[in-house]
Amino acid sequence: MAALAGGLAPVAPVAAAAAPAPGVAGKTSHVARGRSIDIHAHYYPESYCDLVGGEGAKFGGKFTCDSTSFSFQTPAGGLGPLPLKFIRIDERLADMDASGVDMQALSLSVPMAYWAERNFNAKLAKTWNAAASAIHVQYPDRFVVLATLPMLNTSDAIDELERASELPGVRGIYIGTNINNQDLDDPLFEPVFAHIEQIGLPVFLHPQQTVGGARLGDYYLSNLLGNPFDTAIAGSHLILGGVMDRHPQLNVTLPHAGGALPMLMGRIDAGWTARPETRLLAQKPSSYLRRFNYDTVSHSGPVLDFLIQNVGVDRLVLGSDYCFDMGYEQPVTFLDRLNLSTEHRNLILGGNAAQLLKI
Rank of each mutant, 00 (worst) to 15 (best):
Val211Leu: 14
Arg246Asn: 09
Ala18Thr: 13
Asp269Leu: 00
Thr278Tyr: 04
Ala260Cys: 06
His206Ile: 05
Leu4Phe: 10
Leu289Ile: 00
Tyr114His: 14
Phe120Met: 13
Asp102Tyr: 05
Arg118Lys: 15
Pro140Met: 00
Ala5Arg: 14
Leu167Gln: 08
Asn346Ile: 07
Tyr219His: 13
Leu221Pro: 09
Cys49Ser: 13
Pro83Leu: 09
Leu161Ile: 06
Ser71Cys: 03
Leu307Phe: 09
Gln198Met: 10
Arg92Ala: 11
Asn181Pro: 09
Arg163Lys: 13
Phe292Pro: 04
Asn223Ala: 12
Phe59Cys: 14
Leu146His: 01
Thr177Trp: 04
Asn180Val: 12
Gly217Lys: 11
Ala125Pro: 06
Gly226Asp: 06
Leu4Ile: 12
Ala32His: 12
His344Phe: 08
Gln283Thr: 06
Trp115Leu: 14
Leu340Thr: 06
Ala131Asp: 11
Met103His: 15
Gly350Trp: 02
Ile173Cys: 09
Leu357His: 02
Phe334Ser: 13
Phe143Lys: 06
Pro276Gln: 14
Arg92Ser: 11
Ala12Gly: 14
Ala76Phe: 12
Ala353Asn: 07
Arg291Asn: 04
Phe143Cys: 08
Met263Gln: 11
Arg163His: 13
Asp295Phe: 03
Pro255Arg: 04
Ser47Pro: 06
Phe143Gln: 05
Leu201Gly: 08
Asn181Glu: 14
Leu280Ser: 15
Gly23Phe: 07
Gly235Ile: 01
Asp185Tyr: 03
Thr177Asn: 01
Glu166Phe: 11
Arg142Cys: 10
Phe334Ala: 15
Leu338Asn: 03
Ser99Lys: 12
Ala282Lys: 02
Pro111Asp: 12
Pro248Trp: 04
Val110Gln: 14
Pro207Ser: 02
Pro228Asn: 09
Leu108Val: 15
Gly26Ser: 12
Gln104Gly: 08
Gly60Gln: 08
Ala134Ile: 11
Ala116Cys: 08
Gly34Ile: 05
Leu167Tyr: 08
Pro20Ile: 05
Ala234Cys: 03
Ser109Ile: 08
Phe324Glu: 07
Pro276Met: 11
Pro187Gln: 05
Gly241Met: 03
Leu224Pro: 10
Gly7Gln: 08
Ala94Gly: 08
Ala113Glu: 09
Phe334Cys: 11
Leu318Arg: 05
Gly350Cys: 02
Arg246Val: 00
Leu316His: 06
Gly212Arg: 10
Val332Cys: 04
Asp336Arg: 10
Thr64Leu: 08
Gly200Cys: 00
Asp321Leu: 03
Gln73Ala: 15
Pro331Cys: 09
Ala105Arg: 11
Leu152Pro: 02
Trp272Lys: 02
Gly54Ile: 04
Arg275Phe: 02
Ser36Tyr: 07
Phe229Cys: 13
Lys284Arg: 05
Glu117Cys: 05
Gly176Asp: 07
Trp272Asn: 03
Tyr139Cys: 01
Asn293Leu: 05
Ala98Trp: 10
Tyr288Asp: 01
Gly7Pro: 01
Lys123Glu: 11
Gly61Met: 05
Ser133Glu: 07
Ile87Ala: 05
Val14Arg: 15
Gly351Ile: 06
Gly242Val: 01
Ala131Val: 00
Gly241Ile: 02
Glu197Cys: 01
Ile359Trp: 10
Gln182Tyr: 13
Ser287Phe: 00
Met151Gly: 03
Leu84Asn: 13
His247Cys: 02
Asn178Lys: 07
Tyr294Glu: 00
Val252Leu: 04
Ala9Cys: 06
Gln104Ala: 09
Pro150Trp: 05
Asp305Phe: 00
Trp272Gly: 01
Gly217Asn: 14
